[in-house]
Design a binder for these strands. Structure first.
Lengths: 192, 192
DNA sequence: GGAATGACAGATGTCAATATTTGTCAGCCG
DNA sequence: CGGCTGACAAATATTGACATCTGTCATTCC
């Protein structure tokens, strides 16, 4: 054919679509290939396994999320307010995905379970952003200056209930926002 | 028969044993009845459904846990230290159960999912104990005195990762203790 | 008459046969 | 050649016939 060769990006996009439509269990690589007008063998030219393909889609989503959050981490202005908004944005992102693309979110949950390296990396990126805000806060005298890296991780874990997929069923509880604000208050008191 | 009639307590004990042995999915009421030398119809004299029986066993376990923790909440002495020990005891209890009686712990997880009322009640009892420690801390001037009830809940939620069944697979991570201590530091800083 | 039984219908679970899907690779095609 | 195909074996999922379990209740027992 004179047509361009299949690219990794195309496969990724088709896989994302399939994942969104059918979810992590029903999505299969023959369908993905079909959507691209290609045999499934070709998909394996770009990704070694189905799990790798799924993980790549999820990784893309995580990177997108980190990119959305980064501006807040890099803003100037009161660190406390930024951290608050950053956490809210994080939670909003996850909870929106869970609500609007439950199948795709299911894929996130699956990868979360069996690709520890990817989640470690992602947690590293996000706690890095938290740490950045904390540093600013310490520099400006807003926060006390103890254990920056450790605090970032502590904040991450203390808010687990609000962003970890395992708790998605609790997110429909109308009190969830209130609960978060309580934890936020606790965290803020710990920082200032 | 001249023998004593079957008691609720006996059924509960047999059910606990069955649950421990076979887990929440394989345990069945015919076996429970058989262990008691009784027909399964008799079990239904004491519990309306299998789910209710399972929930009753779990409730008993939760009450036992709350009872074990209560002394720490009621001690006198430095509140910060007591709260720390209380949380460690809570976590230790859950993690030990998960390790040593995984089937029974599985029953806890199941009930957690579909008996919201029971977990609400249990969370209420435990946050009550936290609140008690907090009050002591405020009275002694150890803690600042803002929003006692709310703080108790906030502490509960901030430590979710360390006591919620959904996270049991993370408990084998050797860093889990370190992670908890980081969150504890954050909480403590927020209180003092 | 209060407690227990056991036969029963409907729900739920099991398991083995069957079908789909994954991942490989020798060969085709432009 | 580089990129793609499609036939294939092995792994995984689905189905449906069958077995077990749940929950009820008319009846029996002491």
């Amino acid at each position: 054919m004179a047509a361009e060769p299949l690219t990794r990006e195309q496969v990724l996009a088709a896989a994302e679509e399939a994942l969104r439509r059918y979810g992590p269990t029903k999505m299969n690589v023959v369908d993905v290939a079909q959507a691209l007008g290609v045999s499934h063998g070709s998909v394996y030219r770009h990704f070694p396994t189905k799990a790798a393909l799924r993980a790549a889609v999820v990784r893309k989503g995580l990177e997108k999320k980190a990119a959305q959050l980064l501006p807040i981490a890099e803003e100037s202005g009161p660190a406390a307010d930024r951290l608050h908004r950053w956490l809210l944005a994080l939670i909003e992102f996850k909870q929106r995905l869970a609500r609007e693309d439950p199948e795709l979110f299911g894929a996130h949950a699956v990868v979360d379970k069996d690709d520890a390296a990817l989640v470690r990396e992602h947690v590293g990126v996000l706690t890095g952003q938290i740490a950045r805000i904390l540093e600013d806060g310490v520099d400006s005298g807003e926060f006390r200056g103890s254990a920056l890296e450790g605090s970032a991780l502590a904040i991450w874990h203390a808010t687990t209930r609000f962003h970890h997929p395992a708790h998605r069923y609790e997110w429909t509880d109308p009190k969830i926002g209130e609960d978060f604000e309580r934890v936020w208050t606790l965290i803020l008191d710990g920082l200032t």
